[in-house]
Nucleic acid binder design. Sequence first.
RNA 1: GCGCCUGUAGCUCAGCUGGAUAGAGCAACGGACUUCUAAUCCGUAGGCCACAGGUUCGAAUCCUGUCAGGCGCGCCA
Length: 555
Amino acid sequence: MKQTIKNMVTAAAKKAVAAGRLPSGQWPDMEIEAPKHESQGDLSTNFAMVSAAVQKMAPRQIALVLIDHMEPVGWIEKIEVAGPGFINFFLKPAAWHPVVNQVLEADERYGVSDLGKGEQVQVEFVSANPTGPLHVGHGRGAAVGDALGNILSFAGFSVSKEYYINDSGRQIRTLGTSVWFRLLAQAGREIEFPEDCYKGDYIKDLAQEVLDREGPEFLNTPEDIAIKICARYAADRILAQIRKDLADFGVKFDQWFSEQSLYDSGRVQQTIDALQKKGQVYEKDGALWFKTVDFGDEKDRVVVRSNGLTTYFASDIAYHQEKYERGFDRVIDVWGADHHGYIDRLAAAVMAMGMNREQFQVILVQLVTLLRGGKPVQMSTRAGEFVTLKDIVDEVGKDAARFMFLSRSYDSGLDFDLEVAKQKSSDNPVYYVQYVHARISGILAKAVEQHPEMNMDFRQGRHLSQLVAPEEIQLIKALAGFPEQVEKSAATCHPHVIFTCLMTLASAFHVYYNRHKVITSDATLTLARLSLVLAVKKVIRNGLSLLGVSAPDRM
RNA sequence: GCGCCUGUAGCUCAGCUGGAUAGAGCAACGGACUUCUAAUCCGUAGGCCACAGGUUCGAAUCCUGUCAGGCGCGCCA
């Protein structure tokens, strides 16, 4: 539709030049957009305004000349010049009807595009240390990463979702220490807890489990060995729980990648050797430094400490190099906003590998403030007092939680109110959208039950010319907008675009529903309307599915 | 001090690859169920788009500066 209008405008411009009414045969890119107000038509182009400089004419003049030479296609009602020089196109209802057929035919593939052209993209997200349960912040990251993966995949990218398991290094040892000392304490030993130990009930549970499993004689194990056993056991258990929590949250990963495996395979050492060979590192103060400044970082970074241990940065370089070797054209890391200071150094490392800056993208998800009835929920990770993702899913449900996390741009902080998310009311946007799906399911069920004689061929999208009510046209416009919203969402990597789009569509439906009966005594009109609402149902389902939210048939 | 994010209705936020009269939900007030689900709809009210400059036909949107809030600036992960 937009392309047709574009062609019309271009053709008119050419004719105008040929007729000597426009001075220049050059024109910049125009935009075809839906205007904000109904009085401004259905589609609009800024062609006259962007050409003003080239034509050395007032935009309105250009627009008027263009209209003179325009040969409108059949479904155009009228064309007007408005405002500073917009050319507004008013469409006949018939222009919109094919959209319903397109939705019905494409079904679960409606909105699919080839924007990505098969580009291999990896989305890495959550990647929390297996040292404790996932909390709210991880939940937002999980929702964003998972939805983004779905959306990119829908938009024609070849996507792989990955979780990087930080199962190596000091924090795992700290975990082991925490469990070991807790175990000793629970066995009645008088001990002092080290400063940086993890606290929280889950540590107590794990300590008890280790004790039950290993038996009382475990208490006599040499400390170093005991801590290792505790660490291994605890990390495995916690990781299993993380996997389960994410599965319950509707998040599936294609790949779980272990940091430890990079050490076990010698990959980290190889990476460091390679850096040395390329002269990208140097020694200072007994440590080995990566010249990240050469690639835009504000200072050089240590990869091997003076005590001989590698840094987290070192394994991250190895990991990211490994990602590109797997064939990804682009790597997207979803991080909490508190990690933004890490972007430049990793980007530098990626560029040092010979990649382009565009091939590495970090999505920073801003903080979540958890509220209950408008009051902040106090949390302290150190003290082990925090609301876990599991708590949230248990309390408000997967759908409400995901929808809430995806309702706002991740560039903004998010207030997540448990009371609101739990309410089955209009405060809670997830029901607003799901309700559309349920209502339509109800209508379709009733139609099939009441009028089996019609053979229910509304799935074919017949008699669509019956759809002329303004609310019907609005609804179809909302359907027509879905594919481009998917592309916008994918191109900007912003899942909340889909949220906004769904809210718009849901609103258009509720308005329509309140004003018109779908099932009427008029058979052809009923069939047309059934086709329309079926199309709405499909698009709602497609959109919700991108966000990982279910589309219930009854509520 | 430097860096990233944010600043839009009383509240929570969309809109930000520049476009016409800046939108939605909540909260407030007034209406609509004998009906395919009222988890809905309709109406009223609510705005120096933080502030000051600049760029141009045109700025909430882009640039510069100021102010305010959040976060980060380790041979931690």
